[in-house]
Nucleic acid binder design. Structure first.
Lengths: 189, 189, 189, 189
DNA sequence: GATGAATGAGACTTCATTCAT
DNA sequence: CATGAATGAAGTCTCATTCAT
């Protein structure tokens, strides 16, 4: 049920994900939701996003771990996400992106889950860049850019039902970063 | 009314923008909607997005025009959008982002408006990069990355109610691009 | 619709009066409620009770006006209410009694409407008793007793589907009051 | 569990008393209800009201026993009930009043429990008045009035969160009855 | 025997849309 | 042409009741 919620949220967003849809996708009964999630939709959303963001962070860390540089990690991440998009008919991209934008101007506590996700994901790239030898400031800023590239690439890909924008954006970012770290290991941006 | 719709759509997205809200914001009468927009909500959304994307494209082109390089244009665009975020309490970022993600997996014709917007915005940066001397392929890929950085940066900024991610991401991208175009004007990524 | 609500509330109380019931009784459509009563059930309840209590107060005042003594007014009121009970299959007694008891321990603003009703009804008997020559203190206390007799009598009558308790209680109260005011016009209770 | 139900019913009535509330108040388990009360809510309500009305009748009888006249008994009963109201934050008044009014127009068998309660309570005052020397008819009618005064007084007190109406109504009734029985022991109302 | 979980009808409410004036 | 009113499907949530362990 949490899993079904996570998929629907990533695919359709907060408002378009009805409790009935979740229940149908999880093959559960109408009334059972409020036994497992007494606080209703927000609780289900919160737990669903906690699940899906946890997995996403683990995958992101694994890709970084398996890569010899941050640039390589970006490129691999883009390729991996492109596969996911293809495998899910362009439904699953970022687990929180749609929801985050929908509720950005509310005081919905789910927004905290989104913020935390972005923060932790950011840390993964910061650490990777530090390992690549970058200065702390450069690492922080570049990690923000990497997150942005991936999120923006996913948005373009889902909007156009085409993985090319995501692949291209990640490959470009990867190239630029490698070019930067290789050609100027001692200066700052 | 179209204007009111554009603001609400950018701020709250497709599902959370009710016809009633638009009518109230535009101080129009309930029943007049279907005189002006016989095809209902989707028509209103479509015309609203056409208006707001037109303005966004004009601004993007103007910034590019006023900049001596694409890297500078990116940085200026980030700063401009940060101002907009601040001025609108983080409501107005990309005019279509939220809507695009919400309806990405539907066959809603509004999605075409979103795609067109991204395409045209992409062209602006492609042309700018060509003017900077890049090869066609590089320009296309880099323009995609630029779009991604801006869209992703806006998402991070709106989610955290803080313009820093947007500024940092754009500045990093600008730095990398300038570094790349200056140090290696003849090679390709 | 307000009228239908008033009848259902007097008959079945707050919780058992569904919006659907009101709509069905008023032959209106499901969604029209929230056009006329944007604040929902509580607003409908409030306006319904305002209508029915207004009528009840007018009738109570008219009966007092038409009577030569408060005692006579009580007896006539009991007979009148007995007729109403018979005519409505024991559905309509006090317009607010059931609702008042149901929400007595909540902070529902409808409770104020109930309190006001009792206060104004009380005043009618206070004035009548003052006209009969009673001291202010006696009048106030006796008026409270009269209200209690009528409300209690209505409760007993509705519970037993029999108007006898109401008639008996009012007649007894009438007799006692007449006996008191006649035999001791100068002393106080 | 029966005890918890009795308190909730007196306080909130039939509809607002959920099985879940009872179970929670009694610290019992959800599924155990239908082992102890196979006939469901109505059985629980019935047994709860049987318990609470039994206690109320015993107290009423005790007060009558301890009083030298029916008038005195009424006054003492009013004072006692006022204490209960104060001690329970105006939650506990008559054990059946709210429920009786809610279900008066249904064929719910619980209504019989309410009727029986009123009948037995009525008998207590009839007997007390007969002991005071009243004729059978007068005693019956006056007992009905006494019941009405107490029930009505409780309703007014709970509605206004103030014991004054109850005290005043009972005191007035007491005074009138004493005045009547003393000044005219031989006539009839 | 007792319990956590499941069930589905029904409550209140919102929404895009249409109608009568 | 414009407007207040009407419409009914659908959404979130609650509840009394039953089931599998």
């Amino acid at each position: 049920m949490i899993r079904a919620g996570a998929e629907l949220l990533a695919s359709n967003g907060y408002a378009a994900t009805g409790m009935l849809d979740v229940v149908a996708a999880a093959k559960a009964s109408r009334g059972s939701i409020y036994f497992h999630f007494p606080d209703g939709k927000d609780q289900l959303v919160s737990e669903s996003l906690t699940l899906s963001t946890g997995r996403a962070l683990a995958r992101a860390a694994a890709v970084v771990e398996a890569s010899s540089s941050t640039g390589e990690a970006i490129e691999r991440t883009g390729e991996y996400l492109a596969e996911v998009l293809n495998a899910t008919d362009f439904r699953m991209g970022c687990p929180v992106a749609t929801v985050a934008l929908e509720i950005a101007n509310t005081d919905n506590p789910v927004l905290d889950t989104c913020r935390t996700f972005f923060d932790q994901w950011h840390s993964i790239y910061v650490n990777s860049l530090l390992r690549d030898g970058l200065a702390a400031d450069d690492a922080k800023n570049l990690a923000t850019m990497i997150l942005s590239v991936i999120e923006g690439g996913l948005m373009l890909a889902r909007t156009s039902s085409d993985t090319t924008p995501l692949i291209d954006a990640c490959r470009s970012a990867s190239g630029l970063i490698d070019h930067f770290t290789n050609s100027s290991p001692q200066e700052s941006s």
